[in-house]
Design a protein around this nucleic acid. Structure first.
Lengths: 189, 189
DNA sequence: GGTAGTAGCCTAGCCCTCTTAGGCAAACAA
DNA sequence: TTGTTTGCCTAAGAGGGCTAGGCTACTACC
């Protein structure tokens, strides 16, 4: 019988695409096996278990997003960089809802340390250099910035903004204005 | 054979407690049936399906949190109210991780409109009255505030702050300072 | 106080997913 | 050509979700 040519990479990519279509929770080993025209059990030659697959999708998404953010930041500084970062983040989340959701799963410390999450943290700090904050304010500001981005995108996706007619795009733009303002004038202790 | 005395309310409460212990994704009809000493199929007399159960848990959580926030806001205004709201929100999320996670599921519009989510929106706007913002700034500010709270709590839970030693509590407190500052000085268009 | 009617539970059974164990065949290396 | 490895298979068990159909305990009404 001919071999299907399944590899971990192809499985991860197909899983990511499936996640974007039907949601991470529906990315099942069985569904992927069907997609490759192979039996479920065969995939356990490539994957440890179903959770392993989801972790791989998360790592893929982290790396993809880091690449996008890096490209968006190139040659920018200050508010320009802030907005570019933010939009890269939000656009990715909207274009790849399943991948974005996968990114939220809890990685164990070693995996997280070896992931592209580290690049994200570095880039976030790079942006804040334009605002001249010293520690521990810088850490607090990075956390607030990331919280704002993630919170907005997450609420937007789960329909948290649906009950008001105001366009989410407009609120997003104004939220970035506000974030820039507070980073520029970070409150003293 | 004696009746177990199962009701939708008891199922929802037990489901919520189970969610806090093992996570919403592990709140299964079968597990609840075991908890009540009853067969799985019997629960379908009380529940439409497994998703129905999760929605009920979400609605319970929304109502509980709204009660807490209302109590926290009583007699407070300005930054005092902002901080009380924020802490009620974060404390609830940390004490009830499963319930909080359940709150994030996507409710259909009618269900959402009939839920305690409406009270949340009203209370959020009530806080902003202290900052004297007019529309559409008020809507944008509510969204930013909510995004910040939810994003922070969500990232904290999934371990997004673990790689830096700075205590999350401290960043939280400073984030609230910053949020208060930007609401006080909302940037002009 | 007997007797409908209904509410609450049951068994049986189907389908799906996850996962392990053990086997066979294709591809490749020596 | 002959191992050896790699990639797939079948078989099978453990759970979870859910439906159909049935029996029983309670309730309400005459």
């Amino acid at each position: 019988m001919a071999r299907a040519g399944v590899t971990v990479e192809r499985l991860t990519l197909a899983g990511a695409e499936l996640a974007d279509e039907v949601g991470v929770e529906n990315v099942t080993v069985a569904a992927l096996a069907r997609h490759f025209g192979v039996k479920d059990a065969s995939l356990y030659f490539h994957l440890r278990n179903a959770q392993d697959l989801r972790v791989r999708i998360a790592l893929l998404a982290l790396a993809e997003l880091a690449d996008r953010v890096a490209a968006a930041l190139a040659g920018r500084a200050g508010k320009d960089a802030l907005v570019a970062f933010a939009n890269a983040y939000r656009d990715y989340a909207r274009q790849h809802p399943g991948r974005y959701a996968a990114m939220q799963i809890d990685l164990d410390p070693e995996t997280a340390a070896a992931s592209a999450g580290v690049r994200h943290a570095e880039m976030a700090r790079a942006i804040l250099r334009g605002y001249r904050l010293s520690e521990p304010d810088q850490t607090d500001a990075v956390r607030m910035m990331h919280s704002t981005f993630h919170g907005f995108v997450s609420l937007e996706k789960t329909g948290g903004f649906r009950h008001t007619s105001r366009a989410a795009d407009d609120s997003w733009s104004r939220t970035l204005d506000a974030l820039d303002a507070v980073l520029t004038n970070w409150p003293p202790r």
